[in-house]
Nucleic acid binder design. Structure first.
Lengths: 240, 240
DNA sequence: CGTGCCCGGATTGTCAACCATTTTAGGATT
DNA sequence: AATCCTAAAATGGTTGACAATCCGGGCACG
């Protein structure tokens, strides 16, 4: 009873999200995280269809949360959904990453970090230090996923601290595609470099001096941009 | 049976969306448009709560489409929703408009217009010309709403023609807040100026020469930026 | 032999009724 | 006056059923 696929057969298994009972919280959010992780990790190919009923039985929920999750993923640019045709996984072109996603990330992070310099508390710094430490551990054991998670948290903490609603919201809708891109094609710099970047950033943040922070930040964001060689995969689009 | 309000009593009436029977299509999408228009036009105050059940009865649909609509509006930055607390209308700070939203709009439109120069067909130009004409008519009769709608379509057509999925998606998530901002505080330039801008832009596009287009585009986007004097309104946010 | 039409299965969109979970606002108690 | 408690309000999720739409394949026709 193979699920219908639009591209290839890459039989992806998803663990139910309803079990355990330990991790509470809204089902829908867990569905989002499960699917997002799966897509970013490349467990779904671009072009592949995501069928609501299939996902809901696989994840052990009803269609409601799955529908909401798909909408969320659509806003994160990981899928595109067409009326009565459902959601398909999207790819990202090299060009859009370079010319649009990275510049936007630069814009939001520059603004947010500048704001955060004025508002961050000692607790915030401590929380960030924790993420740096986690990143170090992950780097030592070569756990890319954990390192990336810490990276993510690092930036999320700073941007949350800046208290800029829209900026944060936009950032959260941008990063998943960038991550997906770097996961699909050769990744960015080495894990060690990544840790070092963040260690320096934390130190700079503590000085609360924009002149210290901004160069590091800009370098950190723009450096992780490997040479092209990417194909796009960006299924069907019609006129308006 | 006044609806519960969090800020003031601004008794807003919404026409049902289910009637008529002429305009078909997914209910949910119509709900989105109704609410978006209402918010942008300022018929809901920032801080005001949007209650699913109230909206669904007012609009004549079930809660399902309303829920999806609220999610969509959340991605457009018009509302923010917190777990078990529902959706609240958001304001936009002057600063975020200047330092984040406008720069992002610049990024996506520059890229998209450049791409479109290579791909636009005669039909596209014709469709754009139609919007310019509609804008002229609206300007003559002083119909701001219609003029803005044509403006919107103008840019949407070009960006759709460019075929850049993510860029288009991001643009659609950005413009509503910018519109809301300009509607709330004194608007941008005059309608005549707006028409002239687009007329020139269309002519420039037809030359397919980036050197002709870009200066006009950048001026068009950045010019509409009235002096500050804005308050923010950006209800409750906690730590992560 | 190709072309176009029609049909039925698959999938999304919507509805309705219901219960669980959580927040919130009063009210009672101390 | 402050605290705790309770009940109403609202959201989150479930189920089951339809309606609307898309898509692929078979069939008749040129």
């Amino acid at each position: 009873m193979a699920v219908t696929r639009a591209v290839e057969t890459s039989q992806t298994e998803l663990a139910p999200v309803a079990d355990g009972g330990l991790k509470a919280g809204r089902r829908g959010q867990q569905v989002v995280e499960t699917l997002r992780t799966a897509i970013i990790a490349g467990r779904f190919e671009p072009g592949e269809r995501l069928i609501e009923s299939a996902l809901s039985t696989e994840l052990g929920t009803s269609r409601g949360p799955v529908r909401e999750a798909l909408r969320q993923l659509e806003n994160e640019g990981l899928v595109m959904s067409l009326p009565y045709r459902g959601a398909v996984v999207l790819g990202v072109s090299d060009e859009e990453v370079q010319h649009v996603l990275i510049p936007i990330r630069l814009t939001v992070e520059r603004y947010s970090f500048a704001k955060a310099l004025e508002t961050m508390t000692e607790d915030d710094f401590a929380e960030i230090a924790k993420q740096v430490w986690l990143m170090e551990q992950a780097a030592k054991s070569g756990d890319l996923t954990k390192a990336v998670e810490a990276d993510l948290q690092f930036h999320d903490i700073v941007m949350t601290a800046s208290g800029q609603t829209h900026t944060l919201q936009i950032w959260r809708s941008i990063w998943p595609r960038i991550r997906a891109y770097f996961f699909r094609y050769g990744r960015s710099a080495s894990l060690e470099e990544m840790v070092e970047d963040h260690r320096l950033l934390l130190a700079a943040l503590q000085t609360r001096d924009p002149k210290q922070v901004m160069p590091l930040l800009e370098r950190h964001i723009t450096v992780a941009t490997p040479p092209p060689g990417a194909k796009k995969l960006d299924p069907g689009k019609k006129r308006r």
